[in-house]
Design a protein around this nucleic acid. Structure first.
Length: 805
DNA sequence: AGCACGCCGACT
DNA sequence: GTCGGCGTGCTC
């Protein structure tokens, strides 16, 4: 086993293959697949992943591995497999897939340095560069560039006095703590203490201290406190060999200063029992299976998760729980930490790079048994997985919108298959894809339709904003909402106001009849383009002029839509000056911890109204909230996205669930210009099943998922013409490669037609069964390879896209 | 991605 | 004659 196949950290088509390296004799039995190494690559050094160890190299002129970065492989054999699967299913580079499975801190940082070849060359350096090497024998390339002395250095390099060195370092550092312990036994220590010269009073005392303790290790701070020992005393005793130092890895614990109240398993309702039984059975049997737990808000899904995990841990196995952007729900972390204490690692975007790395290390070192985290936590390096849970399965944040464009649900199922363990998908509003699979029997449906505390679902009323306008109310608050808000303030109860900011973009709607202009071929809203006063469809490229009157009712009040939280806050202050308002949006939650602060302020009753966007829709649970208002339910409904109705229904249901979760019953007011729309009407009725049926019909009619699969090819180019012609060529190429039954739409301008001065066109592929697809798309990449290198053509491929932009 | 090699125009 | 433009191709 003399050679290693390495995937190098150079994300490019030409380097997306293993390179063989010789393993230096000293590391022969040390290097294993999954380890990160540093290898020479051309003139520089790069990081790479060992994917294979072999007796012979496939290449005659191998070079040697220069550094080993891991003692234990950072990618387990199974995760290496997951990596290969990722490249195949998302068409990304191998290195991109591997990189995505590790915390950012482990990504290499590359630095160029200029090194003095030999100490004695220092005096031979020319006058202009010598000053830079007076105190050191290296000098950062970037500094040299700034100082403008590169040409001078070049000359010295040619003379052989200096050399260019490529340094590979890590972003995050392991945090270690120094512990001091005795190097001898207690008797020997006592003897040593007696032989200490009289002037070494402190050393003598410290030795005596150690001779009285058994086999304990202390940090220097502890010694300072316990024995008044200074660091210099410790050091000289270490030097004399009486004491020894020990470096132990320590963790930055983001939750160190927080106490989690220990909780006990609650007794389950009959429904919960019914749901947990089949899960426990699969855990017991060690069998792969996918469950879809469809449970209304407040039905106690989390308790089912907790008790299932309990069973997994009892079998000595590990579990992964995915939650959407967990930073937003400290309440969720609390529930897991409360039940499983220090067995839990938490991975989410609110942690620093170092903190994330530490949590990851805890998993790798098997110090935790459970990880709760956002999307990428699906790659937690557990080796004995017993269950994977995906909470709020419908959340779109489970799909990564950059390479590798994977969906955590797919990765979960792939891993669970390998580990023979169950996957539990939970949601009050499952995606149509998952629910359809459950109906077909691919997944097992578990249903929780009652709320744990038997509270009725909140009363939802829909306010027709067209009516308000007719009555002369031009503010963004309907009479009813305003009245109810005032009522809550008076009663000392709290309200949540939800503004859907997404879709601020520009769909066009009639303020009188609520008619939104749609594409005749795609059943999605057209987008308004100021340039040329045109309406465009981003799917098929259809175009039409912006009408001056509503095509439906001939009203002149037709215009495009959008508003922001700040404006709402101002208006609220005008109409309801007595209310104390907390506003939560990107502006007010920018700083780390600001989020939690605002939420806890609201929780302790420092405000009457919580006003916010998306981020307040999830997982909040405040007993005193009895009113939820949705200011404009339509904004999302008319996004150019075939999932718009689904997302609207999910969001409205989600938001409604924030009201009346405890003793006080709740009420929801939804303001809309399209009250008759089924996704709004069915929210009022709390009827997911009806929504599912209706939406499925439309999906079938327009050939969208789950009836068809989608693939999105986005072409970008510095010139408009280049983008157009390349995308046209791609479309015709694909038409030749793929089956007749596969639909290829476009090319059409991307919803964001120009980013960074690059024009973007896209085409969408709809297919049912297409074995050729991956091969055809790979072929596209290959065929346009030269153009991609030469004229700055870019091709991005998203299989099963979520965001169609 | 970097970087070197290599082949054509404007300069000491 | 050379410096330097960036097209081309390679990196185990």
């Amino acid at each position: 086993m003399n050679f290693a196949s390495v995937i190098v950290d150079v994300p490019a088509k030409q380097t997306d293959k293993p390179f063989d390296y010789e393993i230096p004799a000293a590391w022969k039995n040390l290097i294993k697949p999954g380890m990160r190494v540093v290898v020479p690559f051309g003139p520089r050094k790069v990081q790479g992943f060992v994917i294979d160890i072999k007796e012979e190299a496939d290449y005659p002129k191998t070079r040697k591995i220069v550094e080993v970065l891991d003692l234990t492989p950072s990618l387990t054999p199974e995760l290496l497999e997951v990596g290969h699967w990722l490249t195949e299913t998302t068409l990304c580079f191998k290195i991109t897939a591997f990189g995505a499975m590790l915390p950012a801190a482990m990504k290499a940082k590359y630095e160029k340095e200029i090194l003095l070849v030999k100490e004695e060359f220092r005096d031979s350096l020319s006058q202009d560069v010598q000053p830079y090497f007076i105190n050191s024998n290296s000098f950062a390339w970037s500094e040299a560039e700034k100082a403008g002395i590169l040409p001078n250095l070049q000359k010295e390099i040619e003379k052989g006095l200096l050399e260019v060195y490529y340094k590979v370092s890590q972003k995050g550092n392991r945090k270690t703590t120094r512990y001091i312990k005795a190097a001898l036994n207690q008797k020997q220590l006592l003897e040593a203490a007696e032989e200490m010269p009289a002037q070494a009073r402190k050393q003598k005392e410290l030795l005596e201290f150690f001779s009285e303790t058994e086999d304990a290790a202390f940090t220097s701070q502890e010694l300072q406190a316990a024995a008044a020992a200074s660091d210099s005393t410790i050091r000289s005793l270490v030097k004399k060999g009486f004491l020894q130092e020990e470096w132990v890895e320590s963790y930055r614990d983001p939750y160190a200063d927080r106490r989690f109240e220990q909780t006990e398993p609650l007794s389950l309702t009959e429904e919960q029992e019914g749901a947990i039984k089949p899960i426990l059975q699969k855990v017991e049997d060690g069998q792969h299976h996918v469950f879809l737990m469809y449970g209304v808000t407040g039905s106690g899904k989390t308790e089912v998760y907790l008790q299932s995990i309990e069973a997994v841990l009892q079998k000595g196995k590990e579990a992964i729980v995915l939650v959407p952007e967990i930073a937003l729900t400290p309440q969720m972390v609390e529930r897991f930490k409360g039940r499983f204490g220090s067995l839990v690692a938490v991975l989410h975007s609110g942690l620093s790079t170092g903190e994330k790395y530490d949590e990851w290390r805890k998993i790798q070192r098997k110090e935790v048994k459970l990880v709760v985290g956002a999307r990428s936590a699906i790659f937690a390096p557990f080796e004995n997985l017993g269950m994977i849970i995906i909470d709020e399965e419908h959340e779109t944040s489970y799909k990564q919108e950059e390479n590798p464009r994977y969906h955590a649900r797919d990765a979960a199922i792939f891993r669970a298959r390998k580990h023979n363990c169950p996957v539990v998908l939970g949601s009050a509003t499952p995606t149509l894809e998952s629910f359809a699979r459950a109906k077909k029997g691919n997944y097992e449906l578990l249903s929780l339709q009652g709320r744990v505390n038997s509270r009725p679902m909140p009363e939802v009323s829909i306010v027709d904003m067209r009516e308000e306008l007719r009555k002369g109310n031009r503010t963004m608050f309907s009479t009813e909402l305003l009245e109810q808000l005032r009522n809550r303030v008076e009663k000392g109860q709290q309200s949540v106001l939800f503004l859907n900011k997404r879709g601020y973009s520009s769909f066009v709607m009639c303020r009188d009849c609520g008619y939104a202009i749609q594409c005749p071929h795609c059943d999605i809203s057209l987008t308004y383009h100021r340039s040329g006063q045109q309406l465009k469809c981003h799917y098929c490229g259809h175009e039409e002029p912006m009408p001056s009157v509503c095509p439906e009712c001939s009203s002149e009040h037709i215009r495009f839509f959008g508003t922001g939280t700040q404006k709402v806050e101002e208006e609220l202050a005008k109409v309801l000056p007595e209310a104390r308002v907390i506003r939560m949006d990107v502006d007010t939650t920018g700083r780390k911890g600001a989020h939690e602060k605002l939420l806890s302020a609201f929780g302790t009753g420092e405000a009457d109204i919580l006003l916010g966007t998306q981020m307040i829709a999830k997982g909040l649970d405040f007993p005193k909230v009895t009113l939820v208002g949705v200011l404009a339910a339509d904004t999302m409904l008319h996004l150019p996205d075939f999932r718009a109705s689904e997302k609207t229904f999910q969001l409205l249901t989600q938001v409604s669930g924030r009201a009346g979760r405890h003793l006080l019953s709740g009420e929801v007011i939804i303001q809309t210009y399209t009250p008759e729309h089924y996704s709004i009407q069915l929210t009022k009725q709390h009827n997911y099943l009806a929504f599912y049926e209706q939406e499925m019909q439309l999906r079938k009619q327009y050939a969208y998922p789950p009836f068809y699969y989608l693939a999105l090819v986005t072409v970008s180019h510095p010139d408009l013409l280049g983008a157009v012609s390349a995308s046209e060529k791609i479309v015709s190429f694909l038409q030749a490669q793929l089956q007749v039954s596969t639909q290829i739409l476009g090319p059409a301008a991307s919803p964001i037609p120009r980013i960074n001065n690059r024009y973007r066109y896209q085409c969408m592929i709809k297919y049912k069964r297409e074995n050729n697809l991956a091969a055809a798309l790979k072929a596209v990449n290959e065929r346009f390879q030269q153009e991609m290198q030469q004229n700055g053509l870019g091709i991005s491929i998203d299989l099963n896209p979520y965001q169609l932009m």
